[in-house]
Design a protein around this nucleic acid. Structure first.
Lengths: 348, 348
DNA sequence: TGTTAGCACTCAATTCTACTGAGTGCTAAC
DNA sequence: GTTAGCACTCAGTAGAATTGAGTGCTAACA
């Protein structure tokens, strides 16, 4: 049960049962209706046998303590980020519905294709399951050993370095040489590259030949090109599904535009997801992720592991008033299945 | 100057100079303001020395002939798809502004990385230049000869078939064998695959070995896996840039959602662009592309060729009241530069 | 014959008003 | 501590009046 340690350090983060029940009712109702929730509506839920007046006075407290807010004097209450946080940490508990469970099962039973395809389709699945925009992140191959490299000649000046990693990923890098290279030379360079690189990881130091002949130069250039990838987000893959859901989930064209603009910058999305995971959170609500343009969003993440070590994540992005229970359950179910899928019998 | 031959076959598609001038004024103004344009606004442009009354009577004709429409009785006129079409075919003429020309130049001077990266970045560029959503399509490698294949062993049962094509594209395919395979066998299979496939195109028939030993089986499976790709859109690549612009360009959350949903289905986008190109058009306005959900959109396309043969396209998607001149000019400029880029000195 | 000024007419959009009602905070009684 | 009662607030709505942009028509004009 992750919790923010920063922000509101003074609050004890504990509510008596009744306050909690009222908060829960407000959150539930507001998620449902998108409207401010009044004291009488809470009293009418029947979960607590008190009058609206009592609810009202409790609400004043809840508001003072920062769990609720009032859009204007004569309106009901709306949960704050802190209110949602309490709800998520203490109150909600979701399971995936029968039908959805089945849908997930069917999906993973039938899905085929390369890892990338599976991830992309998973993203679509998750978005369909929840009606929120989904993000699937696959970590790069920086820590994966190189299984094989091959230098292929496109023409006299252009070679293509194709590298296969132990995790099954493949990269290609163009190598432009400043002199004409024969097929024989390319083949020899390819052989040397294999000898040099097989078994190493991307950021390992390797001993490149210092000679000045064509082959050695080619080898040096190839290694340099390959290693140039390391500093950038190496081979991180992002798959975003259901970006059209953004238009449904948020009102206000401006918010929609802003969120979409963020989603376009995939690096941002990756680091956002990574940040949240690093904090040990599974949900970041509103301002919690400290990412200004997304204050009106909540982000749910669930890690995916392969053979025990972290190798990606699935995420969901929705409005702060999203259906946490369902969405979190779906994210967890999918991430578990995904983990299972890649751990399991076939890697294809 | 492409023109639709279907639809409105009765119309002569010719307007006298004054009508044309009025239509032009209406289109220009409406693109600018997004509001219906009145007769006095047209008269006030100064481009024609007549009173608003005269403009009015001409507008009645233009409306009767289908170039203009009136949202309601006491409003100005708005161009119809046909009106825009006339405008595009006869009236607009755009050049790319200094600054933009420079931006394009700078971009292509500095861009580096693999083809995919270039295309993705180009898509972003085009979207930034025009403030519309851009689509960059790269055709597949179906017609490209295979330069090299390599079978790499991930573990005893899993192999990865990596194929390099003459156009510089690389594919990977998982091959799952039903028996354990040794490294030696994989190496031998890899050698045979090379012998078999190098120089062929994807949909070519190749003579696979019919023997039943491990190596032969492996070879058969690998070839089958590779060839299974042909029927689908083989290696078509789509890069969509600036989907957030959708939220700006269209009003009405519903339209935004619909357009975004279309953009998510990349196959649809590819076939849309392809359709328009096949019709010899460079712009499809509203209902012209016959694609119901996009009736409020206009799509601009410009082909990209490599070494003379068509190998992709750049496109822009905006509202029917988009800035055709600028957008078309930008699309043309970028497609030309892209063509040049890939024809030119370096392929990287 | 084509053009234009003038005018009555239409109708969306705006403004204003009054009103409604959901919801509050406070208080006094239980 | 709880609750009924009440005065108060204020967004939202509905209706009426007004505005004004724009039209179509007609009659006069070059």
């Amino acid at each position: 049960m992750a919790r923010r340690s920063t922000r509101q350090p003074s609050s004890t983060d504990d509510l008596d049962t009744r306050k909690a029940a009222i908060l829960e009712a407000v959150v539930r109702e507001h998620i449902d209706t998108a409207q401010p929730v009044g004291s009488s509506a809470v009293a009418a839920t029947g979960h607590l046998a008190v009058s609206s007046a009592t609810v009202r006075s409790e609400m004043v407290t809840l508001e003072r303590e920062g769990y609720l807010a009032q859009p204007h004097t004569s309106a009901g209450r709306v949960p704050t980020d802190k209110g949602y946080r309490y709800f998520v940490d203490h109150l909600q508990a979701g399971v995936v519905g029968e039908a959805q469970q089945q849908q997930i099962k069917d999906f993973f039973a039938n899905v085929r294709g390369e890892v990338e395809d599976v991830l992309a389709q998973t993203s679509t699945l998750l978005s369909q399951l929840t009606s929120y925009t989904s993000v699937v992140v696959g970590t790069g191959h920086a820590q994966s050993a190189i299984l094989s490299t091959q230098l292929v000649s496109l023409d006299a000046r252009h070679q293509l370095l194709v590298t296969v990693f132990a995790d099954g990923s493949v990269t290609k890098h163009s190598v432009l040489s400043s002199f004409d290279v024969s097929h024989v030379e390319v083949a020899e360079a390819s052989r040397q590259l294999n000898a040099l690189l097989i078994g190493t990881v991307l950021d390992a130091r390797v001993q490149v030949p210092s000679r000045l002949d064509h082959v050695a130069t080619l080898v040096r250039e190839a290694v340099a090109t390959l290693h140039a990838e390391v500093p950038t987000l190496d081979g991180e893959q992002v798959f975003i599904g259901g970006s059209s859901k953004v238009a449904e989930a948020f009102d206000g064209v401006d918010t929609v535009r802003q969120v979409l603009a963020i989603l376009e910058q995939e690096l941002l999305v990756v680091s956002l997801v990574q940040d949240i995971l690093d904090q040990g959170l599974s949900v970041a609500i509103g301002s919690e992720h400290g990412f200004e343009p997304l204050v009106s969003c909540a982000v749910i993440v669930a890690p995916v592991t392969i053979d025990g070590h972290p190798s990606g994540a699935v995420g969901l992005l929705g409005p702060t008033r999203m259906k946490y229970s369902e969405a979190m359950a779906a994210a967890r179910a999918v991430s578990a299945q995904l983990t299972h899928h890649f751990d399991g019998d076939d890697r294809a």
